[in-house]
Design a protein around this nucleic acid. Structure first.
Ligand SMILES: NC(=O)c1ccc[n+]([C@@H]2O[C@H](COP(=O)([O-])OP(=O)(O)OC[C@H]3O[C@@H](n4cnc5c(N)ncnc54)[C@H](O)[C@@H]3O)[C@@H](O)[C@H]2O)c1
Ligand SMILES: NC(=O)c1ccc[n+]([C@@H]2O[C@H](COP(=O)([O-])OP(=O)(O)OC[C@H]3O[C@@H](n4cnc5c(N)ncnc54)[C@H](O)[C@@H]3O)[C@@H](O)[C@H]2O)c1
Lengths: 260, 260
DNA sequence: CCGACTTTGTGCATGCGTTCACAAGCGGTA
DNA sequence: TACCGCTTGTGAACGCATGCACAAAGTCGG
């Protein structure tokens, strides 16, 4: 529809004046810093898709193919990959193995990250039993609970320890990621303990907003929120349907309407 | 970020004639469309915080207090609330009850959303047993699995049905949200079945990119991705630390480099 | 009834992320 | 070697989200 008249004006070719800081700077680090959070999340997805392809013997892939398998726009994929370097071959595509290894490097997957799960209830059991983590460089090395009936019992091959031992054990086993699966009221206190044990990354399943120091990274998985977002879309869709069928005169009942 | 959808903003494309038509009613429907996805997610968080406050007898709250409890910027909170209307009192703050009911209305929580869980393994059991959903308007009304040993056994009070019954049962029980907790290879096929049973909202725990029609909303919970994002931050942090202590001469371990 | 004080709601600037569009670059081919 | 078609990598535009800063709008004490 629109025509953007590009002016071939100022040659932007080797426009290399903008590097700012240090002169001889290979720039991997600059890159790592500059990667948008959203892109990091997608890189993890690309990595999984690529691993699957590698397992099936695929050796090369184009941005178009990969983007489709990952469910994103091809241009976005290329831009995401460009954040980590230029590892493609024009006219051909990307070498799967090469891409895998570079994404792994950027995501810090060249070393293992030891995981501790706190709160071995319904969810904690599922997590501890889950086989998907160790295989991907995230071995679960410690489990904690307050319940004395659980302490000592192995879950998924790891014995449960009492929460009071959290500091000593986290330090000893070099836990780098703490997973909180306790009831909400206990979450903040567990979080504090993890932090004082030196854990700087936390994955929180409890529906609670955790307060942490700046140097600690928290990610939350909040199922209730996910459900409510879905609910919002249901409602919106119902509204639209209503406005179409009723004829867009305004409000339905209480703003709520029924399914198409 | 962590989002699956291709078209981000909630307000997708403007339909043809219906834009300017409504004269005296800018209200709810147009509003609901305009709410940014990110804001919707936060509204759900505010709702939980507010509910907690209401339970403790708090009747009024300022944007400052609420924003702190929700872990966001106060200005952002006010903007988020402004998307749903003007229900605050200047100089005073917000009435907790009023806010709760309006957020619930916008999120479509004035009606129940029936949930079906597919794949009653480790995770499916945890979900089925979880008491947090029914209380919040998301009753789990159906469970499905292929495993004949599971079929008929009640989990969390609901008997497991065979996956082949999925269409009939989802229709009958008016399931509006389907949760996929099967192994990855089964996820797409389960998804297709849910969709053909009329389910338009899906919460996916399997590490797979689902392909769905445009009218279906998918949200994914991908623990491996969450872990990898944390891993990325660990790596970045390690790099920074190294650059400080080593003194920025170039490369660190493994070709990774550190920041200036 | 007034004036001082508090807090909301929002216009605006800024920054980030997404998307488009295309030149540069590569492999294959004549 | 020179050309051709294909795919990458990226500059630039666009659009959404964030945060600031302040007028508007209310409360409260006198
Ligand atoms: N189960 C689910 O499917 C699900 C879904 C969404 C959210 N969640 C959230 O995940 C968390 C765990 O859920 P769950 O169903 O596993 O709960 P649960 O009650 O089954 O398990 C909680 C476990 O935490 C332990 N615990 C309590 N206080 C503790 C403390 N201070 N230190 C260490 N351990 C402690 C308990 O002994 C118990 O074993 C909750 O916050 C819940 O809201 C769970
Ligand atoms: N357990 C966890 O903590 C965890 C963590 C992250 C991701 N996940 C993901 O969640 C999913 C479930 O994990 P899990 O540990 O519960 O696995 P699981 O193997 O314990 O359970 C899977 C269940 O799905 C059933 N199933 C298989 N094919 C099916 C089909 N076509 N239709 C219906 N049911 C089918 C199986 O019978 C089994 O009961 C997996 O995709 C896994 O990658 C799980």
């Amino acid at each position: 529809m629109k025509h953007t008249r590009r002016s071939e004006s100022v040659a932007s070719q080797r426009g290399e004046g903008e590097t700012t800081t240090t002169p001889a700077e290979p720039a991997d680090r600059e890159r790592a810093r500059a990667i948008p959070e959203a892109a990091v999340a997608r890189l993890a997805v690309y990595l999984r898709v690529l691993s699957g392809m590698a397992d099936q013997g695929v050796t090369a892939v184009s941005s178009e193919e990969l983007s489709q398998a990952a469910g994103v726009n091809a241009a976005k994929l290329r831009k995401d990959l460009s954040y980590i370097g230029s590892y493609g071959t024009r006219g051909v595509g990307y070498d799967v193995e090469v891409l895998v290894s570079h994404i792994e490097r950027i995501l810090g997957l060249t070393r293992n990250h030891s995981v501790a799960v706190v709160g071995i209830g319904n969810l904690g059991h599922a997590l501890a039993n889950y086989g998907g983590f160790p295989g991907r460089g995230f071995p679960v090395t410690a489990l904690f609970d307050v319940d004395d009936d659980l302490v000592g019992i192995p879950v998924g091959g790891i014995p449960v320890n009492h929460i009071d031992e959290i500091t000593a054990i986290c330090v000893e086993r070099e836990v780098s990621i703490g997973v909180i699966a306790t009831p909400p009221p206990a979450a903040q206190s567990v979080c504090d303990r993890l932090v004082s044990a030196g854990v700087q990354c936390i994955l929180n399943f409890a529906p609670v907003v955790l307060q942490v120091p700046d140097n600690v990274e928290v990610r939350k998985v909040d199922l209730a929120v996910e459900m409510q977002i879905l609910s919002f879309h249901v409602a919106r869709r119902a509204d639209e349907a209503a406005s179409v069928s009723v004829g867009n005169n305004g409000l339905g009942v209480d703003g709520m309407v029924i399914r198409p």
